[in-house]
Amino acid sequence: MSKNLLSHRLFWPFAVLVLLLVLNIFFSNNFFRITVHDGHLVGTLIDIARRSAPLILVGVGMTLVIATGGIDLSVGSVMAVSGALACLLIGDLSDPHSVAGVLGAVLLALLLCLVLGVWNGFLVSVIGIQPIVATLILMVAGRGLAQLITDGQILNVSSDPYRVIGAGYFLALPVSVLIAAAVVLIASLLTGRTALGLLLQAVGGSPAASRLAGIQARGLTWLVYVIAAVCAGIAGLIYSSNVASADSNAAGNLIELDAILAVVIGGTALTGGRFSLSGTVLGAVLIQTLNVTTVSMGIPVEATLLFKAIVVVVLCLSQSPAFRERVFSRRKPALTKEAAA
């Protein structure tokens, strides 16, 4: 039984998450305090959940893309584009506080992201360009597009309905967390309860074999890039709404790497095939807990990156069966000693 638990692929990331939380009991003040303020829950744990929301959204899209054996580097730029367009449109509204106007702006921004996703999917599935190269195009061009939209400036918006997305609360819970939870739920239902999940794994395992078996590999591959872009678009709205402004340089900067890390921590194989949405969520929460821990424990700025690196290295090593075999079995250390001698 315990052997089963230890070999579960999410055991080690979960253990590291618990370890981080335990560290915070000793080294941070009020880490686990949750208070109610104005009918909202407030506290560091809530902050971690709120901060994880954009990364979870991007991670869900990334998981599906990686399941088909691809990768999407353009998600950060798509985030920047969606926030920039939404803020620009809302700024042009005659009444920025009108719910219908904001809804229209948000939908248009997401529509643009959908088009960007169609572009990515087209390059990969129809033209047949390698995913890393195909999405690199939009990674560079997308940020340029965002800068074009904002004119290189930080766009400020003052719109109450727009604020709700990233900074609002519903039933005492942050709206951004609810949005992320809803997307995760939909994605897991679609992949868990329908054949979609199986088909994605088949395409990731072997596109040629799945095509011969009658699976529409091209359509599926196209679809996951569209989903990834729309997820990134929603994340971009949360990001920009949180600070009521669109910063086309900082929005989603390097989030593609965090998302890939979250996916990998979650046990999804980068080669395609096997994937785990719950693992990605765990990975995203772990990354944000790590970010918050560095601040709440007061780790000096100069040492922050080193601290994060150590945690990630420990995590990756603990996930590697070969490494665990070497460290935990009795026979192997003797062998390495011999080799050293």
Binding site: N30, Y239, A250
Partner: peptide, 25 residues
């Protein structure tokens, strides 16, 4: 009592301040 990087951006400034506020009364 606390000093961290906010990367010169609004988002990081907000996030780090949230943590400061939670961990320092």
């Amino acid at each position: 009592i606390a000093s961290q990087t906010g990367q010169f951006t609004r988002t990081d400034g907000k996030q780090v301040m949230e943590t400061f506020l939670n961990s320092n009364d």
